[in-house]
Amino acid sequence: MAEQVALSRTQVCGILREELFQGDAFHQSDTHIFIIMGASGDLAKKKIYPTIWWLFRDGLLPENTFIVGYARSRLTVADIRKQSEPFFKATPEEKLKLEDFFARNSYVAGQYDDAASYQRLNSHMNALHLGSQANRLFYLALPPTVYEAVTKNIHESCMSQIGWNRIIVEKPFGRDLQSSDRLSNHISSLFREDQIYRIDHYLGKEMVQNLMVLRFANRIFGPIWNRDNIACVILTFKEPFGTEGRGGYFDEFGIIRDVMQNHLLQMLCLVAMEKPASTNSDDVRDEKVKVLKCISEVQANNVVLGQYVGNPDGEGEATKGYLDDPTVPRGSTTATFAAVVLYVENERWDGVPFILRCGKALNERKAEVRLQFHDVAGDIFHQQCKRNELVIRVQPNEAVYTKMMTKKPGMFFNPEESELDLTYGNRYKNVKLPDAYERLILDVFCGSQMHFVRSDELREAWRIFTPLLHQIELEKPKPIPYIYGSRGPTEADELMKRVGFQYEGTYKWVNP
């Protein structure tokens, strides 16, 4: 592979701008107003304001973009700056750019259920340069409990009458099928589907988006991507930290609602779906819905739930269990780990287990898709061969690698495990991989909904998990304890083995 010439960040961002501006969906010269509902909250200060700053800094926003914060707290732009700027990672050389960014910011205080507050917000936006005809993007960085009041008031008082209007809704989209349907029906009564952007930030990850290209742009994968060759698929999300004093919020939802029903299920769809007619948003989402419709409700015998306990040999936070978090209700049975087996009941995947695993306070930070292939028929190497695996590593250190057998150097035919490896950090030294939120917010500006969740996708996802969630809430089974920093409950490994996964433990990928 030829040595790549190092590029400056300015040059890299210039390439990104060229890609972005050559499309006809990006209205570079139009006025846009980006409204952050819930501007005083954690999500706004840690993710949304920093993301908008990065896009502005790199010249990736339309030229005439204004940012308006809205929340109940009586704040000023200076207050917003004070709480969000520490997350910007701005350099001293960017000081003038930073001043320009905050000059485009404003803030309006108001209630979430008060019509007069929204009329005041609308008047404020109209007073901005060309504000009355601007395109408006409303980001709901809010708890779902206020979605209905907020969307109703936005629709009645704050819509642009000339430009387009788009609304970005953060997960969780309800707690179960019934609450999700209620919320979807409410929002759909106010906005068209092409105006609604239900954001799952995992769909903005580079390697998640790469799944489609790997599958449908490489001839070698087509013939082997089926039940005849693939023994099982494992989708993993692991965090090495616990709730760390923020367990009160987590306890309301648990690990299945927080990660599995959305992030992991979306990745499953991209692995299992048929080739779409095109890369058009609805063509892709149509195929994802077909996959979900082929999955039956989760069966309790295919589920393992766990909850982390303190590690007596650990240090600091590792010595504390979930129930030691003062914000967690006493005696909570909320799971911090889950392993679930699903089956896609169609011709391509009949009988292939899709194993979804996620948890907190585990032994490493990792998100990946792992396809394990069947054993080689007619073994001539005296059971020395391990199964081939194709691994798409989402985070950290984005990579695609194939675990395969090669001859060990020497005189004899002794096979050993090795890999074919594409590590993004080595291959793409001159490429700026956008943060997931950067990519998705740019998608909203461009009107691309491919990486957002459609209402029928959402409904099918909740259909699969709601009976299990209701059973857990009714019966309150005690989750299996696992030690902070471990791989999780051993019962999860036993479940995976029972459905056909072979864990060798003899080879570990190392970032080159």
Rank of each mutant, 00 (worst) to 15 (best):
L7Q: 15
G14A: 15
L16D: 15
F21H: 08
F21K: 15
Q22Y: 14
Q22S: 14
A25H: 14
A25T: 15
F26K: 14
H27N: 15
S29Y: 15
D30M: 08
I33N: 06
I35N: 06
I35G: 04
I35T: 10
G38R: 05
A39Y: 02
S40F: 03
D42S: 05
D42W: 01
L43Y: 04
A44L: 03
A44M: 01
K45T: 12
K47L: 06
T51F: 06
I52M: 09
I52R: 03
I52S: 04
I52C: 08
W53V: 02
W54R: 08
F56N: 01
G59W: 01
G59K: 09
L60R: 08
L60Q: 09
L61H: 01
E63C: 07
E63Q: 13
E63A: 08
T65K: 04
I67F: 12
I67A: 02
V68T: 06
G69P: 04
L75P: 05
A78H: 11
D79C: 07
K82E: 10
K82D: 10
Q83M: 12
F88I: 13
T91L: 12
T91D: 11
T91I: 11
L96R: 10
K97I: 14
L98M: 10
E99W: 04
A103C: 14
N105K: 00
Y107E: 02
V108Q: 09
V108N: 06
A109K: 13
G110T: 00
Q111P: 14
Q111Y: 12
Y112N: 02
D113I: 09
D113R: 10
D114T: 14
A115R: 15
A116T: 15
A116S: 12
S117L: 08
S117C: 11
Y118H: 09
Y118K: 07
Q119A: 12
R120M: 12
N122T: 12
S123R: 15
S123L: 14
A127P: 10
A127N: 15
L128I: 15
L130V: 15
G131C: 10
G131A: 13
G131W: 07
S132P: 12
L137M: 12
L137E: 01
L137R: 02
Y139F: 08
L140G: 06
A141C: 09
P143Q: 01
P143G: 03
V146H: 04
Y147C: 01
Y147E: 03
E148G: 10
V150H: 04
T151P: 03
K152T: 10
N153K: 13
E156N: 14
S157M: 14
S157E: 10
C158W: 06
I162K: 12
I162R: 14
N165D: 10
R166E: 01
I168K: 00
I168Q: 00
I168M: 09
V169T: 06
V169E: 00
V169A: 08
F173Y: 09
S179W: 02
S179H: 04
D181S: 13
D181C: 11
L183I: 13
S184F: 10
S184C: 11
H186D: 07
S189K: 10
S189A: 14
Q195Y: 04
Q195C: 11
I199F: 06
D200P: 01
D200K: 03
H201C: 03
Y202Q: 01
G204A: 03
V208R: 01
N210H: 03
N210F: 04
L211R: 03
V213R: 02
L214H: 07
R215M: 00
N218C: 01
N218G: 01
G222L: 10
G222W: 08
P223M: 07
N226E: 07
R227N: 09
R227H: 10
D228S: 11
D228A: 09
N229R: 02
N229W: 02
A231P: 00
A231T: 08
C232R: 00
I234K: 10
L235N: 01
F237Y: 00
F241I: 11
G242I: 03
T243P: 09
T243W: 02
G245A: 10
G245E: 07
G247P: 01
G248A: 05
Y249L: 00
E252H: 15
E252R: 10
G254D: 02
